[in-house]
Simulated scan of single mutants.
Amino acid sequence: MSKFYTKITSKLQKFIEAQKIFFVATAPNSGRINLSPKGMDSFRVLNENKVLWLNVTGSGNETAAHLSENERITIMFCSFENAPNILRLYGKGKEIKPKDTNWNDVISLFPETPGTRQIFEIIIESAQTSCGMSIPFFEYKGERNELNDWATAQGKEGIENYWENKNQTSIDGLPTHLLE
């Protein structure tokens, strides 16, 4: 059975902190929905209604484009070990870039990560748990290093060139505003 919350309780925060993977969903006003799995040490609960997600360079930048248009975002966590549970966080998000005045405050909450592109601040409007009894068990074996290795090999200039060439628009042609 599902249950709605108006905030992230301490029990929900403990569940979030125990998960190794989460999923981010955004959508433009008109166009394709983006749903992406995320990992690494890239999620922080700041308080009962605010979270941060550190985003690294990747093949697209859909979240930035969608949030600049309508701010809607859903984050989902699933338990693949122990007791079954699914948690969805519904909220409004905004992008924080390295040139923004509060960048140093938020980046200091995360480990140094090659290819860091932006941080998303999400104000949680509601949270929902559901049973997750159909979710299979999976064993966590560790983090993949390929993306960090790739970003390190690119260097700062290579990453910035990648942003210029690959991360300026969404798959639906919306601007990401990454380099503004």
Rank of each mutant, 00 (worst) to 15 (best):
S36C: 07
E48D: 11
N161Q: 09
G132I: 02
W150V: 06
E139G: 04
G60A: 12
S170G: 04
P28N: 04
I122S: 09
I159Q: 14
Y162Q: 10
D149W: 02
G93N: 09
T6H: 05
S30C: 03
G173E: 01
P136A: 01
F43R: 04
T116R: 15
S2H: 06
K99G: 06
G158T: 15
M40E: 08
V56F: 01
E180T: 13
A65P: 14
T169R: 14
F137L: 08
F4L: 04
L178A: 15
Q13L: 05
H66D: 13
G173D: 09
S36P: 01
Y162K: 15
I122G: 04
V24F: 01
T101I: 08
A127E: 13
I107C: 00
D105W: 07
L109A: 05
N148S: 15
K156R: 12
A151D: 14
N145K: 08
L109H: 06
W163I: 15
T63Q: 04
D105I: 14
N70M: 06
N61K: 03
I8E: 00
T113D: 01
E164R: 14
S108C: 05
N148K: 11
M40I: 03
G31I: 12
I124S: 10
S59L: 15
K156M: 11
Q168K: 14
K99D: 12
N29P: 12
S42W: 03
I73M: 06
N29T: 13
S59C: 04
A25P: 10
P114L: 12
G142P: 14
E139R: 14
I73H: 02
K50R: 10
Q13M: 10
N161W: 01
L178S: 09
W53K: 13
V45G: 04
G158C: 05
Y90Q: 01
N55I: 03
L52K: 04
T63P: 13
W53A: 05
L54V: 10
F80K: 10
M133T: 04
F23E: 08
G173M: 01
T113M: 11
I16K: 05
I21W: 00
S68E: 07
F15V: 11
R32D: 02
I8P: 02
V24H: 02
P37D: 00
T116D: 04
K156T: 15
A64E: 09
